[in-house]
Design a protein around this nucleic acid. Structure first.
Lengths: 369, 369
DNA sequence: TTGAAAGCGCTAACAA
DNA sequence: TTGTTAGCGCTTTCAA
């Protein structure tokens, strides 16, 4: 593989001139420039980015760490990131962590060793993660994605408020027995905040928040577990009429389980998701959900990161320059969410639950409180 | 940021010893090793991968180029790739092209400049792309993903056979008027092959293949176009009873359009997809589709690429060594597809349109041949 | 407008 | 077992 020296020789000039011809053509006499370009072409010269990166202060590499791409919400976000860096000559170094905190740590270290100019991260739990503090202390440009931690540089929706609003819609539709279904709660700070929002909405309506129904995402026995859980609740006489799922993918899984259990959505059970996956709108009935602008989240995060990177005088992380160029980049950017009404939410089944009236109405769920 | 020299100084040894301590600890006296490690820790030394990569013959970087992540089929594949490199100490450099041939060319060049050890690519059109030949000529390890070009190093399903089998299922269900719906046909060699497969199945059943209905993926007016097209066909008296969509995403879009047009699936129209997206199974009715093992495609492609890379004596692309270590890596790996029967396919509606035979046989499709 | 030369941080001979 | 040293391919002063 031809290197800059070969080109120089062929063009009859020094390597410095070749470098200039490539990077600052205006500094080179047109004649020389032409000779260099011709030589480069003939030799199929492909500049080695490593050399430049080692020398320079920037690599043009952006590190992206996401939990998984199996959930379109992250893939969408990545599309937004890609869109934002498109044309900037930057490249993406991608790692997924499967929500594993240890992999998070390793992945970040790896990215840093490659000398990425900045990081775009979705952490399992941003607020309690020392990682971000470390990065901050080291002066590594970094934006969190989806994590909403008010004091951190991040781009997200207000998960708590958004969830509350979604649940409020369920309540408005007449539901009182609403249960939140989540993947492993501990795995995601988003889910936790959404659960708080669920609680807010319930209490605001004078209802008692119920414990979340945690269901392992990765277990194949999802349908079974849901059915089993429903049966148990049925026995206890407290079958909910609506389920608020902590994300759309989970909602889809739950809906299938319900179907397998012989329950119709929304006739027997309403379902509300969170994320706003595009496929939700293609379903029938369409999935009611709390929409977060995933692509925009990715795009904004990337834009902020780029601003942060460009804001530094030198490209290298500087431990002392703890003040970003624009201080607002150091704090959360909360994008607007949206409630998407959909066919999966309807009024609860006929027999309504007058509080305090314990009459056993056939086919109806008794009331809580 | 501390470099290897700083560590050496602090540990009271030479940089060579530090390097050894890090990369070949067994070559270093335990005492020294400990000192180095301590020094590295105290200085928060983070080895600069660029230095190593510039020096060495491998970067550990794998270039991945996909059309988009908006289609889960590619995100799934990427998950497979990730899974395959997990634990190998390799990293992924990711680029998406939005099916744009020019971006393909640029992206590859960019990846090559970063000195990736190999490439994993999905091209718009693999068979007629000079790109792969160039790469091959340059000796860059490379595997195509999804593209099925028998003579090329790639991992895919047999799109033609798979499509034929899917369409055969439709025919078996009683359909005769089957139209294939595709995104821009020219944009994807997969779609072309699937159309061939459609033709195969139709002819094998003595039916006349119809022109494909091409519909722009990115146009927002999808629903409208589908309705309009249906209306036209209706006027012509040749309304199809089944649609074979060139991919699942398209199938979902089409189904929505049908719904908006007041047609029920599968009662009024059967729909068959291609890809086997997980969400298809979560729908109701579940999406009938030709399943390709996306994650496995990604995983195998990555594994083959790694084998190819490791097979080379030197890590650098060598123009002459056109023969891979294992010659089979130079040819297609065709993974098995699968027909997923689903609720979107049923027998055609009662009034069938027998070509030439105007008698309306209730409830039965005329027989071919 | 061009060239010579000094590294960027690291690895790997080769010597000691 | 350790150190010295020569680069990997490039950019960028500094001089000419």
């Amino acid at each position: 593989m031809a290197d800059i020296r070969d080109v120089a020789q062929r063009a009859g000039c020094s390597i410095a001139t070749v470098s200039r011809a490539l990077n600052s053509p205006h500094l080179v006499r047109p004649e020389t420039l032409a000779r260099v370009q011709a030589a480069a072409l003939e030799l199929k010269f492909r500049p080695n980015a490593l050399g430049r990166q080692l020398r320079g202060e920037r690599t043009g590499l952006i590190g992206v760490m996401l939990p998984t791409l199996g959930n379109p919400v992250f893939a969408d976000c990545l599309e937004g990131i890609e869109a934002a860096i498109e044309g900037t000559g930057r490249r993406l170094l991608l790692v997924t962590t499967q929500y594993d905190p240890e992999r998070e740590r390793n992945a970040i270290e790896t990215l840093l060793q490659q000398r990425v100019d900045g990081l775009l991260l979705t952490l399992a739990d941003a607020e309690h993660s020392a990682l971000v503090d470390d990065l901050d202390a080291e002066g590594v440009p970094c934006q969190l994605v989806y994590n909403d931690a008010p004091q951190r540089p991040c781009v997200s929706v207000d998960n708590r408020a958004a969830a509350a609003q979604g649940v409020a819609m369920l309540i408005e539709a007449g539901h009182r027995d609403i249960v939140m279904v989540t993947g492993a709660l501990h795995a995601s700070d988003r889910a936790k905040r959404r659960y708080l929002g669920y609680g807010d909405a319930m209490q605001a309506a004078g209802l008692t928040p119920l414990p979340a129904f945690e269901i392992d995402f990765n277990s194949g026995a999802r349908g079974e577990r849901v059915r089993e859980w429903l049966a148990r609740r049925e026995r206890d006489g407290v079958r909910p009429t609506a389920l608020f799922c902590s994300n759309d993918l989970l909602a889809l899984g739950v809906m299938r389980a319900l179907r397998e259990a012989g329950l119709r959505v929304p006739d027997d059970m309403s379902v509300l998701g969170f994320d706003g996956l595009a496929v939700g709108e293609l379903l029938s009935p369409t999935l009611a959900t709390v929409v977060q602008p995933s692509v925009e989240i990715g795009r904004h995060a990337a834009q902020r990161l780029l601003a942060q990177i460009d804001g530094r005088s030198d490209g290298r992380p500087s431990a002392d320059a703890s003040v970003p160029h624009d201080a607002s980049l150091a704090h959360a950017l909360i994008l607007p969410h949206e409630i998407r009404r959909g066919g999966t939410v309807a009024a609860p089944p006929h027999k309504s639950h007058a509080p305090g009236s314990p009459d056993a109405e056939p086919g109806a769920s008794p009331v809580s409180k």
